[in-house]
Write a protein that binds this DNA or RNA. Structure first.
Length: 503
RNA sequence: GGGCGUGUAGCUCAAUGGUAGAGCAGUGGCCUUUUAAGCCAUUGGUUCAGGGUUCGAGCCCCUGCACGCUCACCA
């Protein structure tokens, strides 16, 4: 370990403590209450008019220290909150005061035993009779000191450097309590979604992450290798093809919450690995899935934020069902002036866009062009929750066509805060049509090209046994967390976001 | 991958091309009992790395690295 000067001083303190027969890393503690628990206990006793002292032992990190001659104030912080410690030479003796003063630093985990009381200024505090080092910190926390003034935490400096915060998330969490709240919100979000689906009779399942054939999305996969089997395997890019196999097996309502891996660019809304929720529901179609979606997301919002109206940056967003429903065609027509239904070929749509002065990539398919119109014109207008529905067939190879129009599929995407949140469709269950779609996507049986999606013959075999009509749904849990925790980059809702290696 | 920006003490930040600084933290001292971010003194630097221009570079130029924003990519 490379130690800087500040750290060397603390290591010397460790040696000094050991020389004095004090273990700076004791194995056991006597902690009886959290800081918040101790305050609660005292508040209740106070309200009941009790006169018996409230005796507790608390533990936590030292976050501030104020030495005033023969009395001494400090704050400790644990996962539940903060508590002021009050120490006097009367109880601790000269030696105890010296010990604390000489051996204890900001950031150390300490234990204090005493009785709760209120200071003259009204702050609930612990009158310390005994203390103990629980774990000596060698490295100073990156924000040196917090102070509580009138019940508010005042920060003298805050760890703000994004790189340090992400690379040393432990330090970020230790020093920025609101970051801990983000991850509590994330856990609540996942639990809310899980509870919601469980209550609808869904079965939570786990399907392979290591897959011999990847599919269910258009993304480049990570490749790995099984040594003994001498077989290349892919980290999954979606759960879709495995979950739908389960409907063939008459698990009628299934969902999975887990990690997907996509070997693509990193951005404020993309991380190489991210958490996805997918569910599949037999005897449902995409209209039914829309209803479930708006109920599920608004339920999660209630569980996490306490209401269905949330603040996201400058936007106040009302997630109360029902959400606005807008066909993709109408949405694009309204925002860009182009009617995609009037331009059914790649060339025709590209010409229409050129006529409006919109640049297109040479050779772009109609689906890609529509996607571009959606991203550039429609998406920025979708602040309030909106279901865009009815998508072109050629960018949706797993979705079922509208009965009256085979070029349009029963697919929708949910948008909130100008961000794609989820993607769902009435699932294609015609095995012959599915095979045709795969072939149209350029996945032929002989293809050895890794960049291409290989034909999944086992999936077609499953379909050929018969899959009930069903609706399917996928949503990025990270993005839902961003929304509910009011964080604007995915890195803020990932504990350990991907960064380049150090050095 | 492209463009723009940032990188200075443990943390937050200063510094016209002319002796690298402040606050907090640290160290030493003062401080006789419910507030004090107290007072005095003091330590601490490979200015991201490597080249170049210059009498002289934290600052200007080049290359590289990392991060941020953005564009591209992205069923």
């Amino acid at each position: 370990m490379n130690l800087n000067d500040l750290e060397k001083i603390r290591v010397e303190k460790i040696e000094r403590m050991r020389a004095a027969g004090i273990e700076p890393y004791p194995t056991r503690t006597e902690v009886s209450h959290s800081t918040a628990g101790a305050v609660d206990l005292f508040t209740q006793a106070e309200a009941a008019g009790g006169t018996d002292p409230v005796e507790v032992t608390v533990g936590g990190r030292l976050r501030s220290m104020r030495l005033m001659g023969k009395i001494f104030f400090a704050h400790i912080e644990d996962g539940a909150g903060r508590l002021q410690l009050f120490m006097r030479v009367n109880e601790l003796g000269e030696e105890g005061m010296e010990r604390f003063r000489n051996d204890f630093d900001l950031g150390d985990f300490v234990q204090a035993t005493g009785s709760m009381f209120r200071t003259r200024s009204g702050e609930i505090s612990l009158h310390v009779k005994a203390f103990k080092m629980l774990a000596k910190a060698i490295t100073p926390l990156p924000a040196a000191k917090d102070e509580v003034v009138d019940g508010q935490v005042v920060r003298h400096a805050t760890l703000t450097d994004a790189e340090t915060r992400y690379r040393q998330r432990y330090a970020d969490l230790a020093v920025n309590a609101e970051v801990r709240d983000v991850f509590r919100a994330r856990a609540k979000t996942v639990k809310a979604v899980r509870d919601f689906l469980d209550n609808l009779g869904f079965l939570e399942v786990e399907t392979p992450i290591l897959q011999p054939i990847y599919g269910g999305a258009a993304a480049r996969p990570f490749v790995t290798h099984h040594n003994q089997l001498k077989q290349d395997l892919y980290l999954r890019i979606s759960f879709e093809l495995y979950l739908k196999r389960l409907l063939v097996g008459m698990l009628d309502r299934v969902y999975e919450i887990g990690r997907d891996f996509r070997n693509e660019g990193v951005s404020f809304k993309h991380n190489p690995e991210f958490t996805q929720i997918e569910f599949y529901m037999a005897y449902a179609d995409y209209y039914k899935v829309m209803e479930i979606t708006e109920q599920m997301v608004s339920y999660a919002a209630q569980q996490v934020t306490g209401g269905m109206v949330i603040q996201f940056g400058e936007h106040t967003i009302d997630l109360t069902p029902p959400w606005r429903r807008l066909t993709l065609r109408d949405g694009i027509l309204e925002t860009s002036g182009i009617d995609i239904d009037a331009h059914l070929t790649d060339e025709s749509l590209a010409e229409a866009m050129h006529a409006k002065g919109i640049k297109t990539k040479p050779g772009a398919s109609r689906g890609k062009l529509i996607d571009a119109l959606l991203s550039d014109y429609l998406e920025p207008t979708l602040v309030q929750p909106t279901f865009l529905y009815n998508y072109p067939r050629d960018i949706s190879p797993l979705a079922k066509s509208k009965p009256e129009n085979p070029q349009v599929v029963e697919r929708f995407e949910g948008y909130v805060a100008c961000m794609e949140l989820c993607n769902a469709f009435t699932e294609l269950n015609d095995p012959l049509d599915q095979e045709q779609r795969f072939l149209e996507m350029g996945r032929d049986y002989e293809s050895e090209d890794e960049e291409r999606h290989p034909m999944d013959e086992d999936y077609l075999r499953a379909m050929s046994y018969g899959m009930p009509p069903c609706g399917g749904f996928g949503m990025g849990m990270d993005r839902l967390t961003m929304l509910l925790a009011n964080r604007h980059t995915i890195r803020e809702v990932l504990l350990f976001p991907h960064l380049r290696s150090e050095e």
